[in-house]
Computed example of a mutant assay.
Amino acid sequence: MKINNIVFAWLLLTALLLTAGSASAEVAETDSFKQFIHNMVKQQHFNESELRQLFKAVQIQQPILDAMSKPAEGKPWFQYREIFMTEARIAGGVQFWKDNEAALKAVESQYGVPAEIIIAIIGVETKYGAYTGKYRVIDALATLGFAYPPRSEFFLKELEQFLILAREEHIDPLQPMGSYAGAMGLPQFMPSSFRGYAKDFDMDGKRDIWTNSADAIASVANYFVRNQWRPGGPVVFPVTARGDTYRQALSKGGKPDVGVGELRRLGVDVPTQLAAGETVKLLAYQQQVGEDLWVGLHNFYVITRYNHSPLYAMAVYQLSQAIAARKLS
C-alpha cells in the first residue's frame, strides 16, 4: 500500500521528535524551526539568542497531536448537540448573565450583539471560564507548527502572532495557558484574533481575556461586529420540506448561497417573512432518525466566522435561546 508522502513525512517527523514512550520532547533543530527563527529575527525584529533560549523551554507534546485527530466537530449533530445543550451549561449561562449583567448590557448597547449570543459563545468555548485549557499556548502552537504538517503553515503563523502578542502585552510567553490548538481565555481567541479583536473594555490598560469577564465579553462582541454582525437581524429559521428535491440546495459551509424563491421551488416551506429574493443557507442536521432542516441567514454565517463548523454555530444559537428563555422564566 502506498503511503501519502505528507502523512509519511508527518509520521517520520513525529517519530524523530518524540522518543518511544515519551509524551513530550524539546523542539528539534529542523529546517522548519531554523526558518521560523530566521523570519522572526528578520521580519519581526526579535533577538535570535533570546528566541533560541525561549524555545529550549518549549515542549512538543504528543497529547496535543492526539487531540487534533479527534475534534468534536466530527460527531453527528445529535451527539454534538448533547455536549452543549445541557442543564449545567444553560444554568451556568443564566448565572454568568447575572454575574456580568452590567457589562453585558453596556456591550450589547455599544456593539449591537445580543447578550445571549455572547454568553453562548463563552459557554460553548469554555463553560464560562471553567475549562480554558490545560496546555501552555506556546507548547500547543509549537507542537502543531513544527510536528503537524497538515496544518503547520497555519499554526506557525499563529505562533508568530503569539510571540508578537506577548511582546506587545508584556506577557511572559511561557505563562499563558490555552487549548490543545492554542486558543486562549474565556472566548478561546487564537493569537491573531486576540491581536485583531480583543478589547480593554474596563480601560485598565490590559486586554485580559483570561480573567476579566468584561474584556472577554467586549472582545467577543467586537469579533462579531468586525465580521459584519447585523444588529437586530435574525439568525436561523427551522423549515420543513416536501420530498427530497431540497437536497439539491445542500452544500458545505455556512455562507448564504441559495435564494428563498429557489428553495420554495424545491419544496422547502420557508417562513413567509423571508422575501423570495433573499439569499439564505439551507442546513441539514442529522438526528438519530432523519434530519432537521434550517435556513441560516447572514448572522448565522457571522457565527461561523468564529468557528467554521455549522454544527458549532447551531449549538451556539440553540444554547443562546435556551439561556434567554430560562432567564425570563
Rank of each mutant, 00 (worst) to 15 (best):
F33P: 04
A23H: 12
K252A: 12
Q79P: 02
F224L: 13
N227R: 12
I138T: 00
W77F: 09
Q61A: 03
I60Q: 08
L11I: 11
V258L: 04
Q61H: 09
A20Y: 14
E158D: 09
P271K: 08
M177Y: 12
K56R: 15
R226S: 13
A23F: 13
G243N: 04
Q248M: 10
S213Y: 07
G267C: 07
Y131I: 11
A106F: 02
T240S: 14
A313I: 02
F36C: 04
E116L: 04
Y111H: 11
D172P: 07
R89L: 06
I119P: 02
W10L: 14
I90P: 01
L263I: 05
Q161N: 14
A91F: 06
K206I: 11
S193N: 15
H45K: 15
V302S: 08
Y312Q: 07
F146A: 06
V137D: 02
F155W: 07
H298A: 10
A325H: 13
N5Q: 15
R265G: 05
K157R: 15
G243K: 08
V58C: 08
A198W: 03
R151T: 08
E160V: 01
A140I: 00
V239S: 06
R136H: 11
Q288P: 00
H308G: 14
D208Y: 09
V113E: 07
A147S: 15
I171L: 15
V289T: 15
L13R: 15
V316Y: 01
L319A: 08
A28V: 13
F224I: 00
E48W: 08
L174E: 02
V27A: 09
D200C: 09
G259N: 02
Q318Y: 09
T211M: 12
M85Y: 12
A249P: 00
I164N: 11
I171D: 03
A313M: 04
G290Y: 03
P71L: 09
M184E: 05
Q62F: 12
D202H: 02
R305W: 09
F300M: 08
K327G: 07
I117Q: 01
S320A: 15
S192V: 10
K281Q: 06
T30I: 09
